[in-house]
Design a protein around this nucleic acid. Structure first.
Lengths: 342, 342
DNA sequence: CGACGAGAATGAAACGTTTCAAAGGTGCCC
DNA sequence: GGGCACCTTTGAAACGTTTCATTCTCGTCG
């Protein structure tokens, strides 16, 4: 009944030292400051490491030297391909510095967010890339003095860096395009309005409308509880029940847009002939949709990469000071808004 | 020029002990075995912790007690929503045990895979959930004695557990459905054929074809280099150039299917009227596609959850022995294969 | 020929925990 | 009142590194 149970790596630096016939300190040096060790001994050490299959213990390392080699990233919702792209950008930057990225989902849930934040704190991660669900999470990070960079959010003060995209500009971009295509009754399908982004995109939309000399009520806002396809489907149905049916829809998110599109399809409403649609994020699926979606593109990978780089720079021996970076969005026009009316 | 620089948490268990007027060991006990400490002191300790903002150092903990609190998951491609779902299943199981999941992408790249595997080894993670790119990665894990569970793959031997879905059955399911719908010339748009899954799904497809009494060449296989939308688009074009154009396509993946769908659309080929399509995975976007996709559903979350649970059980004080779990796929019929021919 | 210095290697302290044997205290029973 | 058992608490060792002051070994210069 007894199985041979292998230990997860019984060999320590001590064994290497013995095997190579040198002291522990020398092994450490051979690994961390190769130049301080004679080539001859260095090779002997390396050989011993190879022979024994030695693997450094990061815990011990970190315990003594304080510096962790992992960066944590807490995303709102990895179901949204946009965040996945951001994450890949971050991974890319981290890899260049030989750091690992620990990716996690808060699922927009405060409790989960806190759970992960304490995990990160206990791990003494090098820093955190976070798209917070609210202000609470940030408070925790600040209190613990954990370096962090906000992703897809703007910092209120200059205590931390942030990398974001100008959401007001994005909203304006979308709606201006619709107005130029001749639409005058537009719906904004928003996610929860307590998300700054949803509010900002709405502001941009309103800005475009007032710039065009139209009354503010030319924009009808439909709020949804979440930012996913299902919510979009619901919003689409609601849209169709509206007393004055809009001729165009701007969605806070491509997922919502896909949902709306689907609902319209199901109801036999033609896109863009009867109703035009603009999405946001320009995820890969936007182009692959029933009717390829016009969308406001955000440079997802770039955002992730920049954020990670900022974090790395702020946690380096000679730390840089916090920055606030704002990228500009870009409109990608596809069939879902092709002008079809006279 | 000098900024006050906060240290990432200068307070240790020692400070807590002093502040509470007890010994270090007692603080540790209050935290780990509350029952061995009188309620009075426990409260004092807790109060001190609160007052000082103490956070346990996981490195130190792990160094002494050997057990890490994080599980690593190495996915092939998080761009594919299927894997994201698997990951969420795993997170769920991990959370229940108060463990964290470190999620990473190998991007099907052997080098990246190895990079992460050594990172995991140095972190002494509790275990690894992996969808390996080949046999190499597994070898590393075995050599280091790192507990691991294969995800969406079957183990060759019984040295590790695996959680997978019967791909042969899935392929058969898809093609049988097409045959029953009256198709007799079918294309299989496969990912790289060195992936077991792609091969297995093909075997299933062939099985269905031979069961129907058709010759094996009723199935044309189109191999792609990757498993994403772009590859699907290419395959779609290739498909249209085929001498005898098939009337149905079975894709190894929903992403491929979406790409194919898009290419057909662009060429004015009607789906399902001219060509029917079946995808695989049943990701959320499958239902939201131009023409909602018929797809072979895999229980993604369940896979992730089961895998994590298995891993946890195998790394518990009283380890369970490796298991091989195979789930059955399920066909979800949507418009892309609705019978339209006489 | 003696002293000096550079380069290489060593040994021990320190990091923050857990763990475990041992010491203190308290109350009970005989 | 002494002995015992039990519950708390303590102190020190151990985990695997890094770091730094120290020692050792030569070769070179004056």
């Amino acid at each position: 009944m007894s199985r041979t149970s292998e230990r997860p790596s019984g060999v320590s630096i001590k064994d290497v030292a013995r095997h190579a016939g040198v002291s522990i300190g020398t092994v450490s040096n051979a690994l961390n400051r190769p130049d301080r060790v004679s080539p001859r001994t260095r090779n002997r050490v390396l050989a011993a490491i190879e022979a024994l299959g030695y693997v450094r213990s990061d815990s011990a390392r970190q315990l003594r030297s304080g510096a962790s080699r992992i960066i944590a990233m807490l995303a709102l919702d990895m179901t949204n391909p946009f965040f996945v792209d951001v994450a890949r950008g971050a991974e890319q930057a981290a890899e260049a510095e030989d750091l690992g990225v620990m990716l996690c989902n808060s699922d927009q849930d405060r409790r989960t967010e806190n759970l992960y934040l304490s995990l990160f704190a206990e791990q003494r991660v090098r820093g955190v890339l976070i798209t917070p669900t609210g202000e609470g999470g940030l408070e925790v990070l600040r209190r613990q003095g954990i370096p962090h960079v906000l992703v897809d959010r703007v910092t209120a003060d200059d205590r931390a860096s942030s990398v974001s995209v100008d959401d007001v500009a994005g909203g304006a971009l979308a709606v201006r395009h619709l107005l130029e295509s001749g639409h005058a009754r537009i719906a904004y399908v928003s996610g929860p309005l307590d998300l700054t982004q949803c509010r900002d995109r709405r502001s941009g939309a309103l800005e475009a409308i007032s710039d065009a000399g139209l009354p503010a009520d030319a924009l009808t806002t439909l709020e949804t509880a979440t930012l996913d396809v299902t919510a979009g489907r619901d919003a689409g149905s609601r849209l169709l029940g509206l007393p004055e049916r809009p001729t165009a829809v701007f969605c806070a998110n491509d997922l919502l847009a896909l949902g709306v599109l689907q609902a319209l399809f199901a109801a036999g409403v033609r896109v863009p002939d009867d109703i035009a649609i603009v999405g946001y994020d320009d995820i890969e699926f936007a182009a692959a949709a029933a009717v390829p979606l016009t969308s406001v593109r955000q440079p997802a990978r770039l955002i992730g990469r920049t954020a990670a780089e900022l974090l790395i720079r702020e946690t380096s021996p000679d730390p840089a000071r916090p920055q606030r970076i704002v990228y500009q969005p870009e409109l990608v026009v596809r069939r879902s808004t092709l002008r079809q009316r006279s």
